[in-house]
């Protein structure tokens, strides 16, 4: 790997690390994705397989890069944990960036420590499956033909998939987004000196327009013990502490305004 290429790789690694540490989500996402899936694997591949040698094909190189990057995270994570490190953002960043930078250094240093050029060349195998690696001089040019044959359809495919993906996400979220009205009680505490137990009762998802709500408590025999008027807050939530007799099985029914049938019920069994 030549110095310019290595410098670029190291620079991107450092910039990605900075984006992860300090950047907003718009910067940390691309930076993090590069560190997770590209940079460590790219640096290792460069260190293992020198450019210009045809012992690895373009396809293989493309697949190896994310595979080795993930391997770095997993095996590096195990190593970091084994020495007592914490797998937080700094930990993951250290693993990915350190491996990328070290491997880049190895890639730069390797030609100097590699065997003589002639020996290396004689060991090179040109495989038809690997294909020829494009030389640095061969540039991809945007001709009109290429624009029509490659760029246009791929852009169309990308746009279609992105658009329908976004629509699908919002549609699923909208369908899922159902208002859930709940009535719940915490597990009752111990019976106090007066023979009562304290229960924290919470109602959520209340629509203020359907209120006021009534919470009616009745005992084992069905007799009404007490009634509470619930006024939900702006988030549609009400919470209060209720005292219930320890010896009775208490039913708490929640009623909407003007309705005679409870639409939510919790039951507190008698203490034994």
């Amino acid at each position: 790997m030549n110095a310019a290429r290595a410098g670029a790789l190291a620079g991107v690694t450092v910039a990605s690390g900075a984006a992860v540490l300090a950047g907003p989500l718009a910067a940390s996402v691309p930076g993090g994705l590069l560190l997770a899936f590209v940079l460590p694997g790219l640096a290792i591949t460069e260190a293992m397989f020198r450019p210009g040698r045809l012992d690895i094909g373009v396809v293989e190189r493309l697949v190896l890069i994310p595979a080795l990057s993930l391997a770095v995270l997993v095996l590096g994570g195990l190593g970091l944990w084994a020495v007592g490190g914490s797998l937080n953002q700094a930990g993951w960043l250290s693993i990915a960036a350190a491996v990328a930078l070290i491997a880049t250094g190895v890639a730069v240093a390797r030609p100097r420590i590699a065997p003589a050029a002639g020996a290396a060349e004689s060991a090179t195998r040109i495989s038809t499956a690997a294909g020829a690696t494009p030389r640095p001089g061969s540039k991809w040019r945007l001709s009109r033909r290429r624009l029509f044959r490659d760029v246009l359809p791929l852009t169309l495919a990308l746009a279609l998939i992105s658009g329908i993906g976004w629509w699908s996400f919002t549609d699923s979220e909208r369908t899922y987004d159902t208002a859930v009205v709940t009535l719940s009680a915490t597990p009752p505490g111990a019976v106090d000196a007066d023979g009562n137990r304290s229960v924290q009762v919470t109602a959520t998802g209340l629509d203020a327009g359907r209120g006021p709500y009534r919470l009616v408590l009745s005992g084992t025999a069905g007799a009404e013990l007490s009634e509470h008027r619930l006024t939900p807050d702006t988030a549609g939530e009400w919470s209060g502490r209720v005292s219930v007799p320890g010896t009775e099985r208490v039913t708490m029914d929640l009623f909407r305004d003007g309705e005679t049938a409870a639409f939510r019920t919790v039951i507190i069994a008698a203490a034994q």
Partner: peptide
């Protein structure tokens, strides 16, 4: 009798 219903969302 021994069982409490502590949560109900419909």
């Amino acid at each position: 009798n021994g069982i409490s219903r502590l949560y109900d969302n419909g």
